[in-house]
Each structure stands twice: as structure tokens, then as C-alpha cells.
Amino acid sequence: MASETDHSLGEAVAARVERRWATLSIIIVGLLVGMAAYIGIHQATMPQGRVETADPKTLHLSGEFIESNLGSEMQADGSVTVRAIGQQYSFTPQCIVVPAEMPITFRATSADVVHGFLIEGTNVNTMLVPGYVTDLPVRFKAAGDHVMPCQEFCGIGHQGMWGKVKVIDKAAFRDLAAAKRRLTCVD
């Protein structure tokens, strides 16, 4: 049977060990949060800053998501803007053509229910919520073909909603863009 002093001694040891572990835990969590914050600020991979709206009832009638405005567009500042729509159960354009090694902005929304898309083999991954505009800066390192599935349940045809992304050489893209205002793979 332990004496009273042994008992309080043991209690002090237990409390000390426990405090050390708690401190270490806080440091671990602080480090992880700090890393995320640092990368967010210095490499600018932060979520979109502000909330923009788009009415799915009138998307096809006016505004930036009318059909003739969808696809990839060369901007005056040398960047590319891709506008797209998701709907049950396809994307428009169904095949997106973009240049490698150029700053690209995806602007997209949904015409009906919640959709999403990710581009396999890249870190591009976002949601399309009807009523809101998704604005996502991306950059592709190399030319190549990717599949672009809808990654959010959107109804019983969800499994068939796969788009394509064709990343082509910068110069080839410039040639195409000189001839046509809005580009898709089917042109």
C-alpha cells in the first residue's frame, strides 16, 4: 500500500507528464494551422474571395453565361477565361480546350441542381451551386487530355456526367484564339 506522500508524488508526476503532452499537442495543431495559413497567403491558393450570384432561370437569355459566350476566351491581359455551365447530366461545353502554362480563370455555374467538377490528374476541383458563380484560378503544367467528372450527386443520371478537358500547347491555343472568339474542342 502506497503511503500518502507517494500518492501525492505520483499525482504530481502524472500532472507534469500530462501538461507536457498537452503543450506538445497544441504546438502540433498550431504548426499545421500555421502551415495552411502560410501557404494560403504566399502561394495564393485561397478560396474565392467574394460571393457572386447568377439566376439559373435567365442564364440562357442574358448575362455572361449565354450559350454564345461559353467556352475559352483569350483576354487582353494574356490570360484565358473559361466559362461553363453544368446541368443534369452534362457540361456545356462538354469538351473544354485550354492552353498549358498560362493563367486561366474558370467561371462556371449550374442551370438546375448542385453539381461540381474535378479534373483528374490536376488539383482543379470545385462546386457549382445554382444561383451562385464559381470563380477559380488555375494553371495547367503540361499538354494532355483529362476527364472531368461531376463529383456531386445531381440525380439518377449523375454517373454519366463526364466532361473532357484538352490542354494544348500555348502557341497552338493562340493560333486557335486568333481565328475564333470562344473556343471548345468541338470547333
Binding site: 494551422v33 495552411a36 495559413a37 494560403g40 485561397m46 478560396p47 474565392q48 474571395g49 467574394r50 460571393v51 457572386e52 455555374t109 461540381g116 476541383n125 470545385t126 462546386m127 457549382l128 451551386v129 444561383g131 451562385y132 458563380v133 464559381t134 470563380d135
Partner: peptide, 16 residues
Amino acid sequence: FADPQVGAGFKFMHSV
């Protein structure tokens, strides 16, 4: 995180 209807600031708060 990937949704368009919440701004970056609150996403960061929730991440922390």
C-alpha cells in the same frame, strides 16, 4: 471549401 456561396475569410476561420 469548394463552394461559391461562402467567402474566403470564413473558410479560413473554420479551417483553424
